[in-house]
């Protein structure tokens, strides 16, 4: 399966996912009956380097599980994942620890994604500390540089996460994610839950960072309007499978799969409603 997928995939893919499957099972009930959920059912995806690939789909379609498998936070049951031509799944722990810094993840809820007991500088410097990339004073200096890069004042280095606003926390999470100079940044609903103005600011920051560090993004989002504006490629996920991939014009303009058509239609409905509301306000 992996060989077939390799043959199918473009040679330039930064990440190649082939026939990935993941099943969650949990014992429950008085009789100990096991509940089984197939989160991934042979998902295939290529992520092009330097691009923003959006992964869209309904709730429970397996987007986050796929992202966690790529970030090596979950172990797939079967299938293969390559990163820069190296197998990361199935792979040895030595391979994984070598490649892990190159794939970083930014979660949706920044309040819970940052250790509330650590200061901003400690949070940003921790990945560097884990990888033994300098002495304590050097790490703090680097953390302050990273904070400046994401638009946070280094004077706030000793503040705790709860002393920041939602947008500032998300900037802190991004600073931590780029600390190890990753090649791939997985944005798991990272822009959800922010107000429109903050969302736009964070998006601009991400695009600036992409240009500055040649980053590749895998954006997981429910917001198809946002995806339609920023994604280079879109992959549509449904019931644990990637049912359609292509550039944004293809997927949103002339979708082929029934589920993609539904999603594209919902974008048009939202846009139409938005236009109508605007006309009403302007009158």
């Amino acid at each position: 399966m992996g060989t077939e997928a390799t043959a199918r995939a473009p040679k330039t893919a930064l990440v190649r996912i082939a026939a990935l499957s993941k099943r969650y099972s949990q014992a429950g009930g008085l009789m100990g009956k096991r509940f089984v959920v197939d989160a991934l059912r042979g998902a295939d995806l290529d992520i092009a380097p330097g691009c923003l690939t959006a992964l869209v789909g309904g709730s429970g379609s397996g987007k986050s599980t796929l992202a966690k498998c790529v970030a090596m936070l979950e172990k797939a049951d079967s299938g293969e994942i390559w990163f820069e031509g190296n197998t990361i799944w199935p792979g040895t722990s030595k391979q994984l620890s070598r490649l892990r810094p190159k794939i970083q993840m930014v979660f949706q809820d920044s309040a819970s994604a940052l250790n509330p007991r650590l200061s901003a500088a400690q949070i940003v410097a921790e990945p560097l500390e884990i990888q033994n990339l300098g002495k304590r004073s050097q790490l703090r200096e680097r953390a302050c540089e990273l904070m400046t890069e994401v638009g946070l004042s280094p004077d706030w280095a000793d503040r705790r996460p709860l002393e920041f606003s939602g947008g500032q926390r998300q900037r802190l999470a991004i600073a931590r994610a780029i600390a190890l100079k990753p090649a791939l940044l997985i944005l798991d609903e990272s822009l959800s839950g922010l107000d429109l103005s903050t969302q736009a600011q964070i998006l601009n920051l991400l695009l600036d960072l992409q240009a500055a560090h040649s980053l590749t993004y895998l954006l997981i989002s429910h917001d198809l309007t946002l995806v339609g504006q920023v994604a280079d490629f879109i992959a549509v996920m449904h019931q644990g499978k990637i049912v359609e991939t292509g550039n944004r014009q293809q997927v949103l303009g002339s979708p082929q799969h029934a589920h993609s058509k539904e999603l594209a239609a919902s974008v048009r409905v939202v846009e139409e409603a938005y236009r109508t509301a605007r006309v009403g306000i302007e009158r």
Binding site: L73, R100, F107, I130
Partner: peptide, 17 residues
């Protein structure tokens, strides 16, 4: 099960730490 632990794991942090 909290997110910040998942984030820490994503940075390659060791189990004991």
């Amino acid at each position: 099960n909290s997110r910040f632990i998942q984030s820490a794991r994503a940075h390659g942090i060791g189990r004991t730490r």
